[in-house]
């Protein structure tokens, strides 16, 4: 368990147990979030059960440390409890809204005390071995396919940069070190990649 005051004995994250992902539809998650906004504790419990593995998986991948990641999950669900009434279904899907809170929390933590990237090769292998989830949890399959198509159009290095940043929390400096480029070049490449993605995704 993650105790705020426990001595820091948490090691690097193991991949942890994988959840048999409960298929909960985006609409159901949205409904549950409405319940949470009305301070319905049982809706909160169901929402947690349906989404916590996704959020923990997202955060662990960024922080690489299970104990630390569980603390961020804790903070994330407290924020979800407090801010559920601010969720606007016209702007984002419920799960995207939650993943955003989780990612922001994890990246803020990481930037405050950057852990050195001990095993960038592992993280790169992780990128290579991605498996499409049978049950898309975050977005509908069409959206996923479309983004993947657009990513495929990027040069490989730039595609890897975008994914390492978004999924693994790599900073410009991390990317500069790994790709052996000045930070400003990384920034330029990222901007080009992002603009190209935006153009490709714009109908």
């Amino acid at each position: 368990m993650s105790e705020p005051f426990s001595s820091s004995t948490t090691g690097r994250a193991s991949s942890g147990s994988e959840s048999p992902s409960q298929p909960v539809s985006p609409d159901q998650i949205s409904e549950l979030l409405k319940g949470v906004a009305a301070k319905d504790r049982s809706a909160f419990a169901t929402l947690y059960e349906a989404t916590a593995p996704k959020l923990l998986g997202t955060i662990i991948r960024i922080l690489n440390n299970r104990g630390w990641a569980e603390e961020v999950v804790h903070d994330t669900y407290i924020k979800i409890w407090r801010k559920a009434d601010q969720f606007d279904a016209t702007k984002a899907s419920a799960i995207t809204w939650m993943v955003t809170i989780a990612r922001n929390g994890a990246i803020d933590e990481l930037r405050k005390q950057p852990a050195s990237r001990k095993a960038p090769e592992d993280e790169l292998n992780q990128l290579a071995s991605k498996e499409p989830n049978a049950q898309s949890q975050v977005e509908n399959q069409q959206t996923v396919n479309r983004l993947n198509l657009c990513l495929e159009e990027l040069e490989k290095d730039r595609r890897d940069m975008v994914r390492l940043a978004y999924l693994n929390g790599w900073s410009r400096a991390d990317l500069a070190t790994h790709f052996d480029q000045p930070v400003n070049t990384v920034k330029t490449w990222l901007h080009r990649a992002l603009k190209q993605l935006k153009g490709c995704l714009t109908p």
Partner: peptide
């Protein structure tokens, strides 16, 4: 956030320890 959210789809879910929910 909307444009890039589909990237999060490839994350492998990890089940939290049961104690975490009690703490929350």
């Amino acid at each position: 956030e909307r444009r890039l959210s589909a990237l999060a789809d490839e994350v492998t879910p990890v089940t939290p320890d049961p104690e975490l929910y009690q703490q929350i």
